[in-house]
Design a protein around this nucleic acid. Structure first.
Lengths: 255, 255
DNA sequence: TAGTGGTCTAGACCACCCC
DNA sequence: GGGTGGTCTAGACCACTAG
């Protein structure tokens, strides 16, 4: 007995082995994005999917759980599994670079690098990055652009491997600090802790963002953690009011 | 062969049947909160836990997945499963009432109800709540307090079941709109879509929050969806800069 | 190489929704 | 009652990490 066509084709693909349930999740996601199943319409029952794609029901369920966690599907006990409304599907937020996030929203991301300094950590920065004061850190200040218009300021402090440095050229090439972390320093940003509030633009902020001083800005502070849950970046972002920060939050805390 | 003590005790408890994996998750969460296993220290291997608690390894894994989604644990392939740092464990955000959220942060929640109107939905409100214009809605305006100090304004539009009404007395008793939705209208808020930005306080805002007009405020708009993914509430919240909005975001979007 | 988490299976039974 | 998702099992094998 052989596996259903489309999944088998993927299996023979470049990657040596993507798990079955991820392949199924991709297949389902694609068929949902293409509109084959409408909002709030049901998927075939798990048992049917298992037969169709020649896998166990448990594997089908894993695919459904994955898509559920991404806001693509939702299941109701006794009723069925349904396609989430588009409004939900497009709200999911992930730990993502500004670059990728902007592209996902349909904008053209850009940046103007204001400065890259190799410096010693202040007590505050050292504390939040879990290092000793005066340890070396890299500070990167940037203006973020969408479609060539400034939308926000980013002030990042990076903890680099011992002796490593970061050049303006490297950053200009990729445009994304996260890509550099992954590709050059083999550090995968895995989790982010964010704290959001509102502040008034300082004179400096105002000049860079081309608004008046005192304009309300969205202040977002973030600590980024590696796979081992070590802090690797602290970043302060200030965004114009036109920039909207979207999130989906799920379920009930007793879960 | 009988089940390990603590889990069995729970099983005999009030609730007729909480699933095994949730019981194990509760047990593990408790023992983590109590500090029996420190930050970034490993749990016993899944196979050991399965033997200890007399359940299958798959059931143990379900408990671990649940805690992982709540930011309590993280697993690394080939290394083990570890307790997340406290900073992560305390950042998880859920679709929660202001009331519950404030308590979780260690504050005393309060509210001053400014008005409760039964009115007809504007086109904008009707559109976002997925109803016809002029359909009946309830608008609730409140000042939110933490430790008796005003921290924000909430302006909620509720879609109630046909013919239902909402009295000030009911809302004053529970203090929480969500509790009323659940208890009185059998509607469980399941998912929220939020959009956050910054605004300047209007003269009215300023008076209610006891600050100067023009003060930057955090503006958070939210659409709350029911289990069936029908919109049940639209809410605009404006918070003082001192109020911080905390989130944990996970993993990589390619997941 | 030994030990860990990750995937997958085939089958059983329960809980819930709706007709 | 018939169909759906939810839970649980026992066992197999793979993939990754570390000493």
């Amino acid at each position: 007995m052989t596996r259903s066509t489309s999944i088998d084709a993927r299996r023979a693909d470049a990657k040596p082995s993507v798990s079955l349930y991820r392949q199924l999740a991709d297949t389902l996601r694609t068929s949902i994005e293409s509109g084959k199943i409408g909002e709030n319409e049901p998927l075939p029952p798990e048992r049917d999917l298992a037969v169709s794609y020649d896998m166990s029901r448990d594997t089908v369920r894993k695919a459904i759980r994955l898509l559920e966690s991404q806001g693509v599907l939702y299941s109701d006990h006794g009723r069925g599994t349904f396609v989430a409304p588009q409004s939900v599907r497009h709200m999911s937020r992930f730990l993502d670079s500004f670059t990728a996030d902007t592209i996902r929203r349909g904008g053209v991301p850009g940046q103007k690098i204001l400065s890259i300094e190799h410096t010693a950590a202040s007590m505050a920065i050292a504390s939040i990055l879990g290092m000793d004061p005066h340890s070396p850190v890299v500070r990167v200040r940037r203006v973020r652009l969408v479609n060539d218009q400034p939308v926000g300021l980013q002030d990042s402090y990076l903890r680099l491997p011992f002796g490593a440095t970061l050049s303006r050229k490297e950053l200009e090439r990729t445009g994304s600090l996260y890509r550099l972390l992954i590709d050059k320093f083999a550090t995968v940003p895995t989790e982010g802790l964010e704290s959001v509030s509102a502040v008034a633009a300082t004179a400096d902020d105002a000049a860079l963002l081309r608004v008046e001083a005192g304009t309300p800005l969205l202040l977002c502070e973030r600590v980024t953690l590696s796979e081992r849950r070590e802090p690797v970046e602290y970043c302060e972002m200030k965004y114009l009011p036109s920039y909207r920060y979207k999130t989906r939050i799920s379920k009930w805390s007793s879960d």
